[in-house]
Design a binder for these strands. Sequence first.
DNA 1: GTCTATACACCGATAGAC
DNA 2: GTCTATCGGTGTATAGAC
Lengths: 187, 187
Amino acid sequence: MDKKQLILDAALKLFVEYGFHNTPTSKIAKEAGVANGTLFYFYPTKDELVKALYIDIKSRMTACMYENIQTGSSLRDIMKQYYSSSLQWTLAHATEFRFVEQFNTSAYLKQIAAEEVKKHMQPAMDLISKGIKDKVLKPMDVDMLFTLIGGHTFGVNQYLVSKQFSKAKQTQVIEETFEMLWGMIKN
Amino acid sequence: MDKKQLILDAALKLFVEYGFHNTPTSKIAKEAGVANGTLFYFYPTKDELVKALYIDIKSRMTACMYENIQTGSSLRDIMKQYYSSSLQWTLAHATEFRFVEQFNTSAYLKQIAAEEVKKHMQPAMDLISKGIKDKVLKPMDVDMLFTLIGGHTFGVNQYLVSKQFSKAKQTQVIEETFEMLWGMIKN
DNA sequence: GTCTATACACCGATAGAC
DNA sequence: GTCTATCGGTGTATAGAC
């Protein structure tokens, strides 16, 4: 495995456990099994490392989520697939999710270009826009519907993470909460 | 104004702007108009200061929120009051809210006793429990309904903060989204 | 209680050999 | 590309006068 990735993996683990500030680069290098100087060979500053990690995780999440979407289904079914995919992803990548959460509420977020952030939610926005235009979804401001769906998903994720459910029970919760969400947003 | 509070105010402002780690105690003291040593007279460590600030804000938020609740109304109306109050509070205290968000996703959270965290959401939990028992709310796991409501509120808050609405428009959004929420959770 | 002055640990980043 | 060694800046926390 290449050292660049080993450094990212080590950084992820330590950042989530101790926070950005309480994780010295020396510890990251040690955890990754590389020398301190090597870290700075790949990432010119610690800040750059943090941002690179964010972009890396976001990209992998987006790729994974959009990979399994079956276009051609009804809008409702596509939305359900997105919904399920995103919840499944956070369940399977709890550490990554916690890092993203931490990053999103930190001062680092401003340092990431707005396009980089928007890029990942564009397909979902487009889907919602289409739903409103086709009168399948309630006639509301797209941004509002988007944040409503996002908030719902966030809440369910919190719930699933806080409990130790079996796969089957998780799937059931995802099904149930999607029905509730759909009932709220459908026209 | 007493120096202890001045320090908290300064810390809040700087933490939100630069993050915990990029805010040295020296800057906090300067912003508060006190000497560096004075800060450590009141708060033995920087960590203690961060935690004290969290508890201070949470307490003020809880006090303010529960102050304006009219008991005796229907459960639906009480919930609406809670909902409205909490959104109004975050709108009026955006900085405090961002600090709490940052704190909640940080490693500091573990250092706060679970009771301290639960204490602030207990009345809301009780209300939901009662609603389920009285068959006014859907028969579901209390925790799940709680996180669903929390997620919804969180989403709407994000939306309101991201837009620059007039008071009237804000109130309208709060009304509308409560109706959607209520439609989703009522039995 | 509040201040000034300072100790000293720590960590991000660099230099330079291999 | 990767390492070791180290420098210099920074920041938490303390000591001690008032």
